[in-house]
Design a protein around this nucleic acid. Sequence first.
RNA 1: GGGUCGUUAACUCAGCCGGUAGAGUAUCUGCCUUUUAAGCAGAGAGUCGCGCGUUCGAGCCGCGCACGACCCA
Length: 590
Amino acid sequence: MPELGVRVGQLSSEEQLSVIIFPAGLEFEQDILLFKVPSRHGAPHSYFKDNRVPIRPRPAKNRTLQGGRHPLPLPLQPLVLHLNPMETTSNLLSQRREKAEALAQDGINLFSNSFTAPQAVADILPKGDLLQAEAHEESGTTYRLAGRIMSMRKFGKAAFFHLQDSSGRIQIYVRRDTLGVETFAHFKKWDVGDIVGVEGKLFKTKVGETSIVAREVVMISKSMRPLPEKFHGLTDVETRYRQRYLDLIVNPATRETFQKRVEIIRLVREFLNNRGFMEVETPMMQPVPGGATAKPFKTHHNALGMDLFLRIAPELYLKRLLVGGFERVFEINRNFRNEGLSTRHNPEFTMLEFYQAYATYHDMMDLTEEMISWLAAEITGSMELSYQGTPVNLAPPWRRLTMDQALVQIGGVDQALLNDDAAIFALVREKGIELQPEAGPGKAKTELFELLVEEQLIDPTFITSYPTEVSPLARRNEEDPTVTDRFELFITGREIANAFSELNDPVDQLQRFEQQINERGDDEEIHPVLDHDYVRALEYGMPSAAGEGIGIDRLVMLLTDAPSIRDVILFPHLKPELREQGKEEAQAEA
RNA sequence: GGGUCGUUAACUCAGCCGGUAGAGUAUCUGCCUUUUAAGCAGAGAGUCGCGCGUUCGAGCCGCGCACGACCCA
């Protein structure tokens, strides 16, 4: 077996990178060449197509491969292969391109802008409507539809396809003797995935499917890529998240989920507007990230020469509006937290916050119960639903427990321990929870609650009387200052809402901010900075008030039975996938 | 951050003990004017995620990396 040398040669054309293969040590007069597409990874990839032995030269210009490793059955005589780039790159994409070019050469506009004002499929085909038309017979008015071809059954001189628009799907019947020979010939180059316009009358097929027999068909946008398979669809979750447009095209359930999401947010606005709340917009970029304890994203404003933070909560701005005299305000917008990702956490998520003057957290509980049970009925048609196989009953009234009651009744903690700080710390250690040294008994109780109780709260449950220690912005309870007038709402073991009677005593607020900073001051990532302006605002006087935050994404998950927050966010954050980028660029170059 | 699993044709997936990469759909060619997972006949299509190693030989074994899913922290 001869030794072989492989050398990366020069581009023989714009599209071909040639690789010269020659038996090492042999004299030869003619280059032996080989081909294939340049890779964007730097190293050209090539292989010897005839015998399928891969050769992978490195970017390093010359490299000798050991003979024994690569038993290439190369002839000792020089060999010249001429490979046509069109042949070697033949694939689905180029086939579509060729088809499109053929249509274009026949004068067909592949991206026509002239088919306007179509009707909606749903207007023609209301659900359950049985058409009056007799089978096999055209009747009624002419309809005009536009949408994407989702399936295609071609015959020699006729075809059926399904057209999908944002409202639904309808079958279209195409015949050569209706369209004319020329148009039908063009039509036969249409593919699943193309966006087209159709005009024609209704009829019923043999098996009774209401369809439209096309009198006219127009190409609106030629698709250059094949859609995922019709039967199994697109199931790869990574592709579904990265290429959400594809997911939306082929998976009706995805479309429904996001339609429901939009509807939920619309209904929330309606609910609050009807109760006199006004929607406001407060800064997403804040010089002092406040209103929650979380790691913020940092950015920089060049002209002002200052760092800004994407907000972790709108709370402090909304309460400034209470000071300003807007007595009922709400905001639905994104919050950003620079923390881990999970099935329940996305770095940006949508939060509803609302504030009502002259109200208490008890009013918020009533309002929340009413709003969410109403939403469920509107969206799912029932207050009893199933989340990931677990039945959940949202019908009011909802259970209300203090944290201590929940620890005893659900967590199985001995009532006697609750007023004994030492015993609580002992139990925490016994459960293997690690606490910061400065953590007090309130923090310890909260940790126990999260461990022992939280995930068992399936049906909606308000947990009240949160320790003051873990509630820096909430008003103290007037009878027991160690707890606050606060609740969190849990459904399916997850926190859905957090609300409290607002702290409006500027002296108390300043002290709590200072205490927070003393505890967290060394944590640069949390950036605890005292918001002096907020304290100043309180000094002017803020009405007594209650406020609440509801995680919209988690609420949508609940009402759409979505297992992951990524299923209810159109474009969830993913790490960039280099391989895909490479493919795209290679294709763009080709 | 740790563990488990996954990554093979455009899509959905097989691939045994390490021995020339397979199917269905999609695509292409031919036939086909009521089909609907249309049908019949034929054909083409692969960087087996990436890299290194072991081996005469790696989709398969080892190590590392990337991306994703789930669980844990």
